[in-house]
Amino acid sequence: MSTFTLVRRQIKYQNLVFWRNPAAAFFTVVFPLMFFFVFTLIFGNEEIPGSGVTTAQFYGPTLAVFAAVSATYTNLAIGTAIARDDGLLKRVRSTPMPPWVYLAGRIGSAIEIAFISAGIMLGVGVLFYGVNIYAVSLLGALITFVIGIAVFAVLGLLLAGLSPNGNTAPALTNATLLPLAFISDVFIPPSANAPAWLSTVADLFPLRHFAVSFGKAFNPLETTGASVGDFFDLKSLGVMLLWGVVGAILALRFFKWNPQAGSKPSKRRRGRTRT
């Protein structure tokens, strides 16, 4: 079997495992959609004051980013840590499967799921909430999206390596992702009242760069009279890529294949709970 086929089949198996686990599919696909429904209900689908975009036009892209980060960062961290606890990674290392092929399978599947969940989010926005998509920014949005989810996939594997076991992985992903989402213009639109240092802090992390540069592609004020090149935000892409490269080096350093002392195989596998 060629290496390419091997990777392709690994992605297929990881997809099967993911979609057969209702809890994981719920949190990755349905949960962000629920945020979308709730936010547009609370705020009404009108223009957000001073932003030039409607509630749905703002939240569609940012929650698509959130869903994509859940599919990559959260799912890879939790799924891989649990697979390690259960000895699945050790079993894989008992076979001639090259380790990178197995990880490529997990990453590939996570990326596919990220595209699906972000696509559903934007699709619902376009069909039911009047979200507009602009041809001029599509390429930039796509490239930004691909880089963003690749970086968060790497960070997810890093977190799996740093988690002592599968039980701590959900706490670690939530403790890192949720506070960042609140200060990164994902859950809350940028506000003039927020202290400047908060946005400085947020800018150190990759999430805000991802959400803002992706969201820009859906902003009618930004897209009017713009050129294709305006949607490649080099600074944001650079910060994300830096996180990706450093994350990859650390992930390789901390990744473990054998179950760790004190970890127990999960009884009911892969029930992902958010705290």
Binding site: L16, V17, N21, D86, G87, L88, P265
Partner: peptide, 8 residues
């Protein structure tokens, strides 16, 4: 210990 993806 038996280790197999339980959803397969």
């Amino acid at each position: 210990e038996t280790v197999v993806e339980k959803e397969l």
